[in-house]
């Protein structure tokens, strides 16, 4: 059965002839690249074996000294093995380029990198106030981060998509399907789990200090903790949580970005939920010239949509596809059980 209004609506969504041609050329180019890669002859086994062997020997020779470099401790020459010392190591002349190695073996285990980050386009400078989110920017003081500026954008309106959640009703399921014996969700020892209510949401935008185009968007949400399930928070605490993505969805313009997971659109002030949070203190993102410490923006970070369980109007809002064991009819108490933690 066809519906004229739906047909008319979808008829407007078509790639232009140029876009179709562009996509086709890209597909064929990718295909030929993949094909030529397949055709290139592999390294001769013998040569590869010699290279691999040399690499292993080099690794074995250098391994005892790595501890020394990574700790930065120069006070004890015997820290990296019985009978060895810094002096004897230096005399032996092995691995002379200490500086280079320090670069490779970053002593900070938390070092990360921007994902999806791209270089600014040549000749494309950011304009004052330019961004996907509208409103007068309010600068955020980034005390530790380097090479970046950040602004709050507080005029972003909750999108109507939230209403879709209110009207949702899911298939009924029998029994307590939420009480899974083997929840697929995983979290680290340091993950805090809290139950609380969202009291505020503020979107922010981050740019490179040099003004080059590098917008990255996120949301800082404040949660009033009603029930600490795991971690150091207490009931009555108001904690700030950074979402590395803007919470609201905008569909109406070509300059739009979207928050494809509708769970984000369901984050509204006054909504109660259970949140799995990582401490922001140990989280940072680095590029060549910039470092962003999440702690500059909030106390905790919520990275994954599986870490979010919201009480909707009639049902639980959560990452259904990733957590099929959990039923939309589950209560927050059942979620708590599901997470296998003691209150």
């Amino acid at each position: 059965m066809k519906n004229n209004r739906i047909i008319t609506a979808w008829d407007n969504v078509n790639p232009s002839p140029e876009a179709k041609e562009r996509m086709l050329q890209n597909i064929l180019a990718s295909q030929s690249t993949a094909a030529s890669r397949k055709k290139s002859p592999p390294l001769k086994y013998r040569r590869a074996l010699i290279l691999a062997g040399s690499f292993c020997v080099l690794c074995l020779l250098c391994f005892p000294f790595l501890k020394y470099w990574s700790s930065g401790d120069t006070s004890t020459g015997t820290a990296y093995g019985p009978g060895s010392s810094l002096e004897s190591f230096q005399e032996a002349g092995a691995c002379e380029a200490e500086e280079t190695i320090e670069e490779v073996f970053d002593p900070d285990p938390d070092a990360g990198a921007w994902e999806g980050e791209s270089e600014p386009l040549p000749g494309r400078e950011a304009q004052e106030g330019e961004g996907l989110l509208s409103g007068k920017p309010e600068e955020i003081l980034l005390s530790r981060s380097k090479g970046l500026t950040a602004y709050f954008r507080d005029t972003l309106e909750p999108q109507e998509n939230a209403d879709a959640w209110k009207a949702l009703s899911y298939n009924k399921t029998e029994g307590c399907s939420s009480c899974s014996e083997s929840p697929k969700i995983s979290y680290s020892d340091s993950t805090a789990i809290i139950r609380g209510t969202v009291t505020s949401l503020k979107s922010f935008e981050i740019r490179r200090e040099d003004g080059s185009l590098f917008p990255s968007f996120g949301t800082v949400m404040t949660i009033l903790v009603s029930h600490p399930i795991r971690g150091d928070t207490e009931a009555g605490d108001a904690i700030t949580v950074v979402l590395p993505h803007a919470a609201y969805q905008q569909l109406d313009t070509g300059r739009t970005f979207t928050a494809p997971n509708p769970l984000l659109s369901a984050l509204l002030e006054g909504r109660e939920g259970i949140f799995l949070l990582d401490s922001a203190a140990s989280q940072k993102e680095e590029t060549e010239n910039t470092t962003l410490y999440w702690q500059d923006l909030g106390e905790y970070v919520l990275y994954s949509p599986e870490s979010l369980f919201l009480q909707g109007e009639t049902e639980l809002l959560y990452s259904e596809e990733q957590l099929p064991e959990l039923s939309p009819e589950a209560s927050l108490e059942e979620v708590e059980q599901f997470l296998k933690v003691s209150p």
Partner: peptide, 18 residues
């Protein structure tokens, strides 16, 4: 998507996406 930080604007000069 959650860790993806490359908005549409980044490419808007490279290719038109009406």
């Amino acid at each position: 998507w959650w860790r993806k930080k490359e908005p549409l604007e980044t490419h808007e000069d490279q290719a038109p996406f009406p």
